[in-house]
Simulated assay, not measured.
Amino acid sequence: MPGKVLIVIPCYNEEASLPSVLKELQQTVLPDNYQLDVLVVNDCSKDGTSAVAKKGKAIVIDLPVNLGIGGAVQTGILYARNNGYDIAIQLDGDGQHPPKELSKLVSFHLESGANIVIGSRFLEKEGFQSSFARRLGIKYFHWVNRLMTGLHIYDSTSGFRLFDKAAIKIAAVNYPDEYPEPESLVVFSKAGLKIAEVPVIMNARQGGQSSIRQFGSLYYCIKVSLAMLFSFIRKP
């Protein structure tokens, strides 16, 4: 019997870009005949995101309050755990993560046995590379993660990532709530999970507004660094 993959799309005001993402997902075929379902977690959008998602034949969870990116992703992970999915893949609704790249994450997971597979812009430096300020921030978090996990993760802020059943089990219970991507790698590393990157080609944002508008700021870097430190020193 084929395994089941849940695509988790956390959304806040993605009415403009979401239709094309859902259309591409409907045409996507994954390796090993995995069954693919799509879940849109609508994080209290003020536009027509929910209606667009339902029209695009996605499963939709409309959150009653705005939880932010971490809470929206964890909602999707909880759905994956409670409904017996083998793999969950976080994918943005703004068009940055092309569905045609999904097969790279799944294939790498099957070949390597990695529990977390991150789609990375920077291994082969193809496609959209983000702004200069954000690249500086990403490079900074690469070294912070290196210090805390011993791993070279070059795109630790990437929200294009695969979770297997072991990772789903952990993330359903313990997942950072605000700007979670760098901090979650500390959590997964402490749990003994295997984390790996695979090169992917990303696009520039196709619509909406980034949830991290001050990414390059000193405030953001300090805040996320402290969160990572607390996760690092916290007892299991």
Rank of each mutant, 00 (worst) to 15 (best):
L6T: 04
A72V: 03
G113C: 01
G93M: 07
I195P: 07
E124W: 13
S156N: 15
G56Y: 02
Q27H: 11
V52W: 11
V29C: 13
P99N: 01
A80D: 12
G71H: 01
I77E: 11
V198T: 11
K125Q: 08
L67I: 02
L6W: 11
I59N: 11
S210G: 15
L105Y: 06
F160Q: 06
D155G: 05
S211K: 07
I138P: 10
G137K: 10
D92K: 01
Y175N: 13
A166W: 14
I222S: 06
D92S: 14
L102R: 12
Q26I: 05
W143E: 11
G76A: 01
K57D: 12
G68L: 00
P99A: 09
P2N: 13
I61R: 00
H109E: 10
S211L: 12
V106F: 00
S184I: 07
S130C: 06
L78Q: 15
H152S: 11
L226C: 09
W143Q: 10
N203K: 11
L110W: 02
Y179P: 04
D94R: 00
L136K: 15
A191G: 00
L63E: 02
F230Q: 10
A227K: 14
Q27P: 14
L151A: 07
D92Y: 05
I233S: 01
T149H: 09
G113Y: 00
F230A: 05
Y179F: 11
P10G: 04
M202C: 15
K125W: 12
L185I: 09
F232N: 14
G119K: 09
S210E: 10
Q129T: 04
L25M: 09
K104F: 02
L123E: 04
E181G: 08
L63T: 05
N203W: 06
M202A: 13
V187G: 08
V224P: 02
S20Q: 15
N145S: 03
G95N: 01
S158M: 02
V186Y: 13
G68S: 02
K194C: 14
A172W: 01
E181I: 04
A80M: 05
H152I: 08
S120G: 14
Y140F: 12
S103T: 13
D43I: 05
A227F: 12
T149D: 14
I87M: 09
V29M: 14
S45P: 11
F232H: 10
Y220S: 13
Q35M: 06
S130G: 09
G137R: 07
F141S: 10
L6Q: 07
I212T: 14
N83G: 07
P176Q: 08
S107G: 00
K235F: 13
S211C: 15
L91Y: 01
V73N: 04
I77L: 13
F128I: 02
N115E: 10
